[in-house]
Design a protein around this nucleic acid. Structure first.
Length: 257
DNA sequence: ACGCGTGTTACTGT
DNA sequence: GACAGTAACACGCG
């Protein structure tokens, strides 16, 4: 369920809890989406000290002192739970037993997963300094719709359906705009909106739920919510649904064709 | 009760 | 090839 700002907070909190601790055991309970063999995971990770937990795109990364890197993706429904001795959570995909506490990854669909040594993806993280005007300008040299491009993880990593709507409203760009038609001013606005929307969301989440490591907080979203009928400036919020995914937008957003 | 909802991949269609 | 759209994954929640 979570998007980048949630994951950013989770990674900080997981880092506080587990960095410097030794992983005693890793157990895989659902192998459906896990390509690594359980014995390979054990061999590479068990007995090693966790150096840090970080986030890149929508992926969490557990770096160990021996250089091993474990990627974790929560997908739509992944949840993380701490446990003391025994994990009793339903739909557990994997369990990590650290010396101080256990961490369980659950997902009723079984789609959340972990990957040993995840490959470097080609997209740039949404909060990276490399995501500047020049990069966006180049990325937008195409005929696709802007929302499809900014949620394409091969272009920008970390922006999902909900925050894409928030960002495009903040930049006052219609999600249906054709990328190559977007003005330079609006590309600058888009760059700024990506940073401000995501960073502000992280701040809001930290303020209300400083210790959170799972779930999603989005009660501060301005546009992508069915709770609201109008934008902060009073424009009617419209919804466009396709394939079970909803795009929320208003006529305040300039449409480039 | 039943519609919703976040991500990714694989596939079809234009 | 470029781009859009949809199903599948199979539950809890209100």
């Amino acid at each position: 369920m979570p998007e980048l700002p949630d994951l950013q907070v989770f990674s900080k909190n997981l880092n506080s809890i587990f960095a410097g601790k030794k992983l005693l055991k890793i157990k895989i309970l659902n192998t459906k989406k896990i390509k690594d063999k359980p014995e390979d995971l054990s061999k590479n990770l068990e007995g090693n000290i966790l150096t840090s937990v970080s986030r890149t795109g929508k992926e969490l990364r557990f770096l160990f002192a021996n250089g091993a890197l474990l990627g974790m993706h929560l997908m739509l429904h992944g949840n993380l739970y701490l446990f003391e001795k025994d994990n009793e959570n339903k739909f557990t995909v994997a369990e990590l037993y650290f010396e101080n506490k256990g961490l369980a990854l659950t997902d009723w669909q079984g789609l959340a997963n972990i990957t040993l040594h995840p490959e470097e993806k080609k997209g740039i993280d949404a909060l990276s300094n490399q995501l500047n005007y020049d990069y966006l300008k180049r990325a937008l040299q195409c005929k696709a719709k802007v929302k499809n491009v900014i949620t394409n993880q091969d272009v920008i990593r970390g922006i999902g359906n909900a925050y894409a709507d928030e960002i495009l409203w903040e930049a006052r760009i219609s999600p249906f705009s054709i990328c190559s038609a977007i003005s330079e001013n609006k590309i600058h606005a888009l760059e700024k909106a990506i940073k401000t929307v995501l960073k502000n969301a992280e701040k809001q989440i930290l303020k209300k739920h400083p210790d959170i490591i799972t779930g999603e907080i989005r009660d501060f979203l301005k546009i992508h919510t069915k709770e609201k009928d109008v934008s902060p400036d009073g424009a009617v919020i419209k919804a466009d649904k396709k394939g079970g995914r909803i795009t929320y937008y208003t006529d305040e957003q300039e449409l480039f064709l």
